[in-house]
C-alpha cells in the first residue's frame, strides 16, 4: 500500500499523458464535444490491452474526429478525407505485426469513405475501426451527413433532413465485420472494453460511438451537450447480441447499444498467405 501511495505521489499529470502529445493539448474539440471522451476511452483501452505501444498505429481521415491521430503519442497518420481505411490496409498488409486503429468520424468513414469501409470489412483486414458518430459534418460547420436523423436541421437541410440515415452497425455487419459494437460517450468503460477486445481480436472490428456535437448539431436541434447525454442515459437500452438489422437509432423506441457481433473468420492476410503463398 505504501508503495502504491508513493507511486501515486510521484505522478504529477494525467494517467494517460504518456499516450498524449502533451505539447498539442488542448485539442481543437469544442467544449462538450464527445470526441475527446471516445479518444480517452480508446487510449485507456490501448493501455489496458497490454499490446506494445510501439506496434500500435492510429490512422485518421479528415474532420473533427480525424484530428485524433494528431494527439496520440504513437505512430499516427492524418490522411486524406475518407481514405484512412485503405491507408491503414496498406500499413497492416505491409507490416502484419502492427495493431492498426482507424479513428475517424461518420462522414469520413461512411459517406466519402463508405466504399473503403465495406471492402475492408469484406476482406476482413485485421484492424480496429472506431467511428465517432455525431450525426453531422462538424468541422465544416454542421452540414447534413449520411447519419443525420430524418427531419433534423443542419445548415444544408434548413427545412429538416428529408433523407434516411444509415445504421452503421448494420452496414459493418452486412459487409463482413467480425466484431461490431455501439456505445455512447457516456459508456466509457464499455467503449474501452470493446476497443480492448477489438485490439486483441484478429479481424475487422467496428465500434460506433455516439457523441454530442453541441456547437453544430445540438445548437440547431435544441439539444445542449448535457441534454444529449441525458438522452443517452434515459433512452438507451443495452442489448448485447442484438441483431444489427434491428438497431436503427430511434430515440422514441430506445437506442440499442451493445456488442452485437463477435465472430471469427480468417483474416485477409491469413487467406492471402494460405492461398497465394502455398507452392
Amino acid at each position: 500500500m505504501t508503495e502504491k501511495r508513493s507511486k501515486a505521489k510521484e505522478r504529477s499529470g494525467h494517467p494517460l499523458d504518456d499516450l498524449l502529445r502533451e505539447d498539442r493539448i488542448p485539442h481543437i474539440w469544442c467544449p462538450g464535444c464527445g470526441i475527446g471522451t471516445a479518444f480517452s476511452s480508446c487510449l485507456k483501452a490501448i493501455r489496458s490491452s497490454g499490446v506494445e505501444p510501439k506496434n500500435v498505429v492510429m490512422v485518421s481521415g479528415i474532420g473533427c474526429s480525424g484530428r485524433a491521430a494528431g494527439y496520440v503519442n504513437l505512430d499516427s497518420f492524418h490522411t486524406t478525407h475518407g481514405r484512412a481505411i485503405p491507408f491503414a490496409t496498406g500499413l497492416k498488409l505491409a507490416n502484419p505485426v502492427l495493431h492498426v486503429i482507424v479513428f475517424s468520424g461518420d462522414g469520413d468513414l461512411f459517406a466519402i469513405g463508405g466504399n473503403h469501409l465495406i471492402h475492408a470489412a469484406r476482406r476482413n483486414v485485421d484492424m480496429t475501426v472506431i467511428c465517432v458518430n455525431n450525426f453531422n459534418y462538424g468541422m465544416t460547420g454542421g452540414q447534413v451527413a449520411a447519419t443525420t436523423p430524418k427531419s433534423a436541421r443542419t445548415t444544408t437541410t434548413p427545412f429538416g433532413n428529408p433523407e434516411t440515415p444509415f445504421s452503421l452497425p448494420h452496414i459493418a455487419y452486412a459487409s463482413g465485420a467480425t466484431y461490431v459494437a455501439r456505445w455512447t460517450i457516456l459508456h466509457t468503460r464499455e467503449i474501452a472494453k470493446s476497443v480492448e477486445e477489438a485490439l486483441l481480436k484478429k479481424g475487422f472490428s467496428f465500434i460506433e460511438v455516439l457523441s454530442p456535437c453541441p456547437v453544430n448539431y445540438g445548437r440547431r436541434n435544441r439539444e445542449s451537450s448535457l441534454e444529449t447525454l441525458k438522452i443517452y442515459q434515459d433512452k438507451t437500452i443495452i442489448k448485447n447480441g442484438a441483431h444489427p438489422s434491428s438497431v436503427d437509432i430511434d430515440p422514441e423506441k430506445g437506442i440499442i447499444l451493445g456488442k452485437f457481433i463477435d465472430v471469427d473468420r480468417p483474416t485477409c492476410k491469413e487467406m492471402y498467405d494460405k492461398i497465394c503463398r502455398s507452392e
Binding site: 494525467h14 464535444c33 466509457t188
Partner: peptide, 13 residues
C-alpha cells in the same frame, strides 16, 4: 477521468 474529453481530471487511490 475517462468521461472528461480534455484529459483535465483524474483520481488517485
Amino acid at each position: 477521468e475517462i468521461i472528461c474529453p480534455e484529459f483535465a481530471i483524474y483520481s488517485i487511490e
